[in-house]
Write a protein that binds this DNA or RNA. Structure first.
Length: 427
RNA sequence: GGAGAGGUGGCUGAGUGGUCGAAAGCGGCGGUCUCGAAAACCGUUAUGGCGCAAGUCAUCCAGGGUUCGAAUCCCUGCCUCUCCGCCA
């Protein structure tokens, strides 16, 4: 969430930022209205409580001195009744402001280009060249089926459309990809590995910003009020929820592999064929907790860490910066990594690297002290995919396909594939 | 799932319904001493809200209740631990 003091003092700037994100600014006005009432009522009830505290102390003294305090007690009974009434109003107003506060999105960083849609996202760099073939490259669904890497029909039979069953060397390739990625981040990029729960509670979802707005985008278990995580960002960021970190230990870098669950309601149809968009997929995620001054520098290295995955696999990709209209509610600045897939002839998003500044830290109450004994301040949180698997799987098989239908295994993965160098068609 | 115990500040751990925002110890910070350090000694050390400020309010897991007054009493929930059962 945003700093309430900042919203009070900069209402117009906040409204403009929300509008630039193509989101509804109604919550800003709702907050301002409820907040003003809340402050008024709070002041009144605080004064009554101060009176009650001093008189209660007097009553205590009188009783110990053996004096009659019944007049004061009668008087305080009325005061307490009034406090009770006001407390109810104050609590309702407090809930109103909190609800509104949770619905106000993060503001875009000043360096983010204003725009309406993905077409307005500037490409800021490209790595590698789009591979040329002396045959017609085929899409991954044909390759995967021909090589026995994925059984699309049986995945659907088990769970429905959008659920994937990897088979044989396909399953092994999937495992090789995330194992290699985790090893890269932990041994080369300084991340500590976490293997988090895939089910999280409501407070975790509020902490990273999926709730309260996006409850129905997620798979949930209402009997237990638990949610299947849409990304490891949720549990890994919430690792430090309610904590006060030692500023001398920042930045903290965590990485984790997890399954990710997304309902993608209404997305069926185009762009969902094969592995392009699925309900359950695997992803390696990177999360950073930093001091405010360094978060944008850390965003650059985070993005570079994600790029290192694609470079290691020899995949052509480009980096775009999301314009204001294409950003998530929680992010202040986001880079997307898009990998080239020659079979489907598309740039596929495989990573989103974001700086949330203190927006998530306020929600999740993650703070740090610069020095021992110093006042706690909010950290900045960042995260990025490093990277998402299904589309990376697509890019690998489509880029490394050969005329005979086989697929060359990228060198870095071979140690994880039992030394296999080429995936051959099944007999 | 059954039975029991318990949730207090960075940690450990006291706390008769009324100077308790909370003893004590550890840890941290500052100082004395020392060439320096250790030890010892002295001091200091929760978080948040409102307010220009003085100040004031809230917080002893969470939410209700009793009371003039709740860390303390009652109810509910959550969590942790021990034992039993079940189980990958």
């Amino acid at each position: 969430m945003l700093d309430p003091k900042y919203i009070r003092a900069n209402a117009d700037a906040v409204r403009q930022g929300v509008k630039n994100k193509k989101m509804d600014a109604a919550a800003v006005d709702e907050f301002l209205e409820a907040d003003e009432l809340w402050r008024k009522q709070t002041t009144e009830v605080d004064q009554l409580k101060a009176l009650r505290n001093t008189v209660s102390e007097e009553i205590s003294k009188m009783k110990r001195a053996g004096q009659d305090a019944s007049a004061e007690i009668t008087r305080m009974r009325e005061v307490s009744d009034r406090i009770k009434e006001l407390d109810v109003e104050v609590k309702e107003l407090d809930e109103r402001t909190q609800r509104a506060l949770l619905l106000i999105p993060n503001l875009p960083s000043a360096t983010v280009p204003v725009g309406d849609s993905p077409e307005d996202n500037p490409v800021i760099r490209e790595w590698g060249t789009q591979k040329t073939f002396d045959f017609e490259p085929v899409p991954h669904w044909d390759i995967a089926t021909n090589l026995g890497l994925v059984d699309f029909e049986r995945g659907t039979r088990m769970s429905g459309s959008g659920f994937i069953c990897y088979t044989g060397m396909g399953a092994r390739l999937e495992r090789a990809l995330y194992s290699w990625m985790l090893d890269l981040h932990t041994t080369q990029h300084g991340y500590k590995e976490l293997f988090p729960p895939l089910l999280v509670n409501r407070n975790s979802m509020i902490g990273t910003g999926q709730l309260p707005k996006f409850e129905f985008d997620m798979y949930r278990l209402p009997d237990d009020d638990l949610f299947l995580i849409p990304t490891a960002e949720v549990p890994v960021t919430n690792f430090y929820r309610e904590d006060i970190l030692d500023g001398r230990e920042l930045p903290i870098r965590l990485t984790g592999y997890s399954s990710c669950f997304r309902r993608e309601a209404g997305a069926a149809g185009k762009d969902t064929r094969g592995l392009l968009r699925v309900h359950e997929f695997h992803k390696v995620e990177m999360v950073k907790f930093t001091q405010p001054e360094t978060s944008y520098a850390e965003l650059e290295t985070l993005t570079a860490n994600a790029e290192a995955v694609l470079q290691g696999l020899g995949l052509t990709y480009r980096v775009v910066v999301l314009c204001t209209g294409d950003m998530s509610a929680t992010s202040a600045k986001t880079y997307d990594l898009e990998v080239w897939a020659p079979g489907v002839q598309q740039w596929l998003e495989v990573s989103s690297c974001s700086n949330f500044e203190d927006y998530q830290a306020r929600r999740a109450n993650i703070r740090f002290r610069r020095e021992p004994g110093a006042k706690p301040e909010f950290v900045h949180t960042l995260n990025g995919s490093g990277v998402a698997l299904p589309r990376t799987f697509i890019a690998v098989v489509e880029n490394y396909q050969q005329a005979d239908g086989s697929v060359v295994v990228p060198e870095v993965l071979r140690p994880y594939m039992g030394g296999v160098e080429v995936l051959e068609p099944q007999k």
